[in-house]
Design a binder for these strands. Structure first.
Lengths: 177, 177
DNA sequence: ACGACCATGTAATGAGTTACATGATTTC
DNA sequence: GAAATCATGTAACTCATTACATGGTCGT
């Protein structure tokens, strides 16, 4: 840890368009769920902190038409912070595959239990792969429209390749177990 | 979170052989580093907690030959706890790919910066893939000797498939950027 | 009226990292 | 005698999840 990813995700989203905390949560769930998630309990305090740091400002607070709603905008300071972070090379992936942990210690388990772990894993990830493929094929058509669509497509493609690898491994593992 | 993985990793290791905290750290770094890591600041307090819970006992404490050293052993309670955990199906992977986050928000970056991110990612993971392949080929020869070796091999194979996917994606991404 | 959704926030808790503090043994 | 490795532990801090607390709007 050490680097607060939620902070940069919020800056990244606000760099696109002004949003409320609720909007930010939606954007994350829709577009980033494949490789990032955050709850309100993380988002609202981070927004508060970012305001204190001068990275974002609260431009609009309406409770007239609809429920209370605070809209935030990224500042110049925030943009610089985001840009600096974007340029830092990524040193390591932060992956903790619980299924591998279980497999590694599975000496205790019988074949059926191991197989059912693998099959469950397979099923879950096949569904995810299908979703990603759908997403990618929708994006393919509009990829040339903007850099954002292209980057979005690249993240979907990453998911596809990784999930294909999961399924290939599951096939092989079922035979070896 | 909620489920303390370090706890089960320690139980899993002690289920194999009696170890000290220092040994456990070594086992994790050598065999599990691909998908798990833990520092001493996590290991020692967890050992203490596991003793309190009756999952493990401290069998040997020597300061005669060499520095202070405490060896722990798993108890029947600990074995049951481990077994129960092993049987619980894994619901989701816990992956947070920082590179995808950066790519997703990379609208700000120029092509060179994006390419250098991808190339760095590629280089790093090519090295890791080579290590995994070496590990796997060593394990292939002794796989039939024990269930543990086979399970170890399966985790290495998982790493290989996933890293191959990373590299394939990087190839494709470089063209599309 | 009820449920779905919009909307913001705090408090408690858990999990993990980093830095700190200490000291022995082995190897060069 | 310096550096590497063995060895244990605590304290401060950060990050994230879950549960709680509150209340408005819109459609049926």
């Amino acid at each position: 840890m050490k680097e607060n990813k939620t902070k940069y995700v919020i800056l990244g989203i606000l760099n696109h368009e002004d949003c409320s905390g609720y909007d930010i949560k939606n954007r994350i769930d829709v577009a980033l769920s494949q490789f990032f998630s955050a709850g309100f309990g993380q988002i609202y305090p981070t927004l508060k902190q970012l305001v204190e740091e001068g990275m974002i400002i609260n431009t609009e607070s309406s409770s007239k038409n609809g429920p209370e709603r605070k809209v935030y905008q990224i500042t110049k300071t925030g943009k610089i912070e985001l840009d600096n972070w974007l340029k830092i090379p990524v040193e390591k992936e932060d992956v903790r595959f619980e299924i591998l942990l279980k497999l590694f210690f599975a000496g205790n388990l019988n074949k059926e239990d191991i197989l059912s772990h693998i099959e469950y894993f397979e099923k879950r990830n096949r569904l995810k792969l299908e979703k990603l493929q759908k997403m990618a094929s929708e994006l393919e058509g509009i990829m040339e429209e903007s850099v954002d669509h292209k980057n979005y497509y690249l993240t979907a493609l990453f998911g596809i390749r990784v999930h294909e690898a999961y399924l290939r491994w599951a096939e092989e593992a079922k035979i070896l177990v």
